[in-house]
Amino acid sequence: MAVLKFRIYFEEDDSIYRDVVVKHKQTFLELHQVILKAYEFDSKHQATFYRSNDHWQRGREISLEKYNKPYKAEPLLMDTTIIGTEIFDPNQKFVYVYDFAKNWTFLVELINVSKEENAKLTYPVVIRTEGIGPSQYGTKGIGSDKLTEIEEKYDLTKGAEGFGEEGEDDDDKDSNEEEEESTEENEDF
Rank of each mutant, 00 (worst) to 15 (best):
A2E: 08
K5W: 04
I8R: 02
D14K: 04
R18W: 10
V21E: 07
V21H: 00
H24L: 10
K25S: 06
K25D: 08
L29C: 06
I35G: 04
K37T: 09
A38T: 00
A38W: 02
Y39T: 05
F41A: 05
K44I: 14
H45L: 02
H45D: 06
T48S: 08
F49K: 03
Y50M: 00
D54Q: 05
H55G: 02
Q57H: 04
E61S: 03
I62H: 03
E65W: 12
E65L: 09
K66C: 02
K69N: 08
P75R: 05
L76F: 06
T81A: 07
T81Q: 01
I82L: 14
T85P: 11
E86S: 14
I87P: 03
P90L: 02
N91C: 13
Q92Y: 01
K93N: 10
F94A: 05
F94Q: 01
F94E: 01
Y96L: 08
D99C: 00
D99G: 07
F100A: 11
K102A: 15
W104N: 01
V113G: 08
S114I: 07
E116T: 03
P124Q: 03
P124W: 00
I127T: 10
I127Y: 09
T129S: 09
P134G: 05
P134E: 04
Q136D: 08
T139V: 14
T139F: 07
T139P: 13
K140V: 11
I142N: 12
S144R: 10
D145K: 07
K153H: 14
K158Y: 14
A160M: 01
E161P: 10
E165C: 11
E166Y: 06
G167W: 00
D170L: 00
D170C: 10
D172N: 11
D174S: 12
D174L: 08
N176W: 15
E177Q: 11
T183E: 11
T183I: 08
N186P: 08
N186D: 13
F189S: 12
